[in-house]
Write a protein that binds this DNA or RNA. Structure first.
Length: 273
DNA sequence: CGTTGACCTGCGGG
DNA sequence: TCCCGCAGGTCAA
């Protein structure tokens, strides 16, 4: 399938998703509870197990990256940002399932990414449907609610209670994630934050990665440092979040991902503010 | 509303 | 090999 610009490696290794693994040229993952694999081609992406429609939706083919970057530049007018954006050209946000996104990011607090992936793997193995690949689908809420004790042996630590409480709420139909996703950004994040295990940062991640709120701007430790270093934006979560969205505009979320991945490489030196 | 400290657990450095 | 510190943050005071 044709898709440009598109950089599959950047897209799947920038930290927004947790279950994709690269083997040779192929990235292997699980989407809609099924094994799938994708690889980069000259002008787009090739996939097994996903229709072109599903692929387009998953990789947000409707997002015109060049227009988005242009918009970000018009808003911030900072040549250093131009460098970061061109360096991360082809990085796309992925449209994740809201339930999986919430449940995953509830586990993503106060631990490094390798261990987040480990916890998610354990949860999938404990609860998920087995797949031909030998891996397991991400569990549905009812699978978790039906046997909460199994989560105790997944090494979730203090996240376990939050994870179970959230799963139970979704299973009982006390939360309408699709409905929350329809709300405007501010209200959406407010609703998400009322749920167990979901605070400011996770709410922004969920809004950005699974609810089409491209103005969401998750502030983690790395982004916090970057925003202070480059633009002198500092202070509470609320302040850094608001000032950054002000700086980058309606596609602040894309700016965030580009900065995040850029700092991971941190090979290049861009002078601070 | 901003600030402060505790918090499961497993990995990495000394 | 053992021990200590640290970590995509959340929650409650």
């Amino acid at each position: 399938m044709r898709l440009e610009p598109f950089d599959l490696d950047k897209t799947l290794s920038c930290g927004q998703v947790f279950r994709w693994r690269k083997r040779g040229e192929w990235w292997e993952g699980i989407v809609d509870g099924k094994d799938v694999r994708v690889r980069q081609t000259a002008h787009g992406v090739k996939a097994d197990g996903m229709s072109d429609d599903r692929l387009r939706r998953y990789f947000r083919a409707d997002d015109d990256l060049d227009c988005i970057c242009q918009d970000i530049m018009v808003n911030c007018g900072d040549e250093r940002m131009s460098l970061i954006l061109s360096d991360q050209r082809g990085l796309r946000l992925v449209r994740q399932d809201p339930w999986e996104c919430c449940a995953s990011y509830i586990l993503a607090t106060y631990v490094h990414i390798p261990r987040i992936e480990q916890m998610i793997d354990r949860v999938c193995t404990a609860y998920g449907d087995p797949l031909p690949s030998g891996r397991y689908a991400f569990p549905r809420p009812e699978q978790i609610a039906a046997n909460p004790d199994a989560a105790r042996s997944c090494g979730l630590g203090f996240r376990c209670d939050r994870f179970l409480a959230f799963s139970k709420m979704v299973d009982r139909g006390e939360v309408d994630l699709n409905g929350i996703g329809e709300l405007p950004y501010e209200e959406c994040v407010k609703e998400l934050r009322s749920l167990p295990g979901i605070g400011e940062k996770v709410a922004d991640c969920v809004a950005l990665f699974s609810m089409d709120h491209l103005e969401a701007f998750p502030v983690d430790v790395r982004i916090k440092k970057s925003m202070e270093h480059f633009w002198g934006i500092t202070g509470s979560y609320k302040r850094v979040n608001r000032d950054s969205r002000m700086l980058f505009g309606p596609y602040a979320g894309y700016a965030q991902e580009c900065i995040y991945l850029f700092m991971q490489g941190k090979t290049r030196n861009i002078r601070p503010c």
